[in-house]
Design a protein around this nucleic acid. Structure first.
Lengths: 239, 239
DNA sequence: CGTTCTGTTGAGTTTCCTCAATACGAGTGG
DNA sequence: CCACTCGTATTGAGGAAACTCAACAGAACG
């Protein structure tokens, strides 16, 4: 049940023009990319890939949030990646995808069929260079998350996730004050899968942080952080 | 306390010539690389980088094993990467390193000062392409490990680590039989840091796997796996 | 107004951690 | 050669954290 294709006329109007895989491209490189791109939209909750699928296309998230998850035979699920606007999906020189990919919100993708994109990487150096940068950043993020999964308490895990979202939102909205408000883009279950917890533990720790005045919410999605520094202290990661 | 520099005369003799960052290079590209490379050796237990250090050089592991770890202010430690021969250390376009890097065994590195290497990446496409491939592989491995850290039991974690080492060793030694023997390259503490466990839990689960006949050892380092498929079943990951 | 989906809260249990004692091997010096 | 020490590993007892199972609350939707 795909949504309608957006009204982006050219890459010049694209909201992710300057942080996606194309951000370093010269005008002539952009022309090559633009020639093979196409848009696809997915409604919230829709699968984009199933683990094991042949990897037909790769692409960038233009808008929305999507998740990568791995599932064990008995049903245990671990999220292993969260893709935000500008992030790249899929991997060149790989025949199949090893994770389930799901649209957590309505998602729009700027897609390239994999084979032409692989050829293009070899011809246009700036795409490959940017992709390397982005992959290294993702690897850094994955390692940060390994510390969270392996060594933090449930409370620290929740605080870490909220702190990450709060600072990222504050950066986007240029909010420089100590207080921040944001809308959680994910459910309790998604939070649990991200953090290696159960939904009950997520719920309990959210309540505990609220009781302790570190966050505030009545609606389940809209979170207020009165003092970001106090929340940061709860992550356990900064002296 | 560095060891003596090895007797590798040229890259043609290098044991990692065909899987390191240089593996796709043409002869002329190799000449550029060879012009700026130099070797460094580290004894087992020696630090190679401290988190926060300026990243003076990058390079490949020629021999030995080294680890990347992150440490919390209260002393909790999580390993976030394990570098084997051929693996690349450091990251272009980054001023400082964010992890502690330690030589777990005696290690030899083939180093390049970072700045010249960054210039070289822009000029020699095959280095950047290979580095992208390697980084994507590392990202896959990190995601696999996130599942282990987030969702597996202590027993499954130990089984997963032993299974990974056993299969990797079997591949190296072309051992096609069902039984495998190998020497653990790491201590119980290192295993614990890898798996997000305490050393006591590692020890208990090792004893339990031994009691159940899945592994055998008397010496603490030399492990025998009578039936690799049975060990695989204990990882919880395969139906 | 019922149904469904999501989230919260409680009670009891399991798993893993903490603290503590002990064992083992390697290296050192008497 | 033997005692001593140090680093590493094992094992046990008790406790804390997170999980499981279960009941219930609130919002969204037909």
């Amino acid at each position: 049940m795909n949504l309608s294709v957006p009204s982006i006329k050219s890459c010049d109007d694209c909201p992710i023009r300057y942080n996606a895989v194309c951000s370093k491209c010269e005008p002539d490189e952009m022309k090559d990319l633009e020639a093979i791109k196409y848009y696809r939209s997915f409604a919230a909750g829709q699968p984009i890939f199933f683990a094991g699928d042949p990897l037909e296309f790769v692409g960038s998230i233009v808008s929305g949030v999507s998740s990568l998850t791995r599932t064990m035979p008995d049903g245990r699920v671990q999220m292993v990646g969260l893709l935000l606007p500008g992030d790249f999906m899929g991997r060149p020189n790989r025949e199949t995808i090893e994770c389930d990919v799901v649209a957590e919100t309505d998602v729009m993708l700027c897609c390239f069929r994999r084979r032409p994109f692989e050829r293009l990487i070899n011809d246009t150096p700036h795409v490959g260079q940017r992709l390397l940068e982005m992959t290294l950043d993702e690897l850094d993020a994955a390692r940060e998350w390994m510390l969270v999964l392996g060594r933090k308490t449930a409370r620290e895990k929740i605080a870490s996730l909220l702190y990450m979202i709060a600072t990222r939102m504050a950066k986007l909205s240029k909010n420089t004050g100590a207080a921040t408000t944001f809308t959680l883009p994910i459910t309790r279950e998604t939070m649990a899968n991200y953090l290696g917890l159960t939904i009950e533990t997520v719920s309990r720790q959210m309540s505990a942080l609220k009781r302790d005045g570190l966050i505030a919410f009545s609606d389940r999605r809209d979170i207020a952080v009165p003092d970001v520094e106090s929340l940061k202290a709860e992550t356990g990661e900064y002296a």
